[in-house]
């Protein structure tokens, strides 16, 4: 098993649906798809608004890219 990862079993039918879903996308594997989905879910559930700290970090990045002074 890959270091820092845990095995999860999902129904074959669901696995195949994901395979179909990603066939025409840039997602490389079912694993990548599931990780992305879960990351987005938990980030979304972690609060609607950016904290002040998050917002300051966004501003820093945007300044580095030349989108803000």
């Amino acid at each position: 098993m890959a270091k820092g990862k845990k095995k999860v079993f999902i129904p074959i039918s669901l696995y195949e649906k994901v395979e179909e879903e990603i066939a025409s996308s840039e997602t490389k594997s079912v694993e990548e798809y599931v990780i992305k989905l879960l990351e987005e879910k938990f980030l979304k559930d972690s609060g609607g608004d950016l904290s002040k700290e998050d917002e300051d970090k966004v501003k820093e990045r945007l300044k580095a890219l030349g989108y803000m002074d």
Binding site: K57, V58, R61
Partner: peptide, 29 residues
């Protein structure tokens, strides 16, 4: 693309990713 444009290698890329996903979700909502 952001890294290329800013000519950096983002050492905190995982954090940046979370930050921008969160920003994107917030603005879309």
């Amino acid at each position: 693309s952001m890294e290329k444009m800013a000519k950096i290698t983002d050492e905190n890329r995982a954090e940046t990713k979370k930050l921008f996903i969160k920003l994107n979700n917030m603005i879309m909502d």
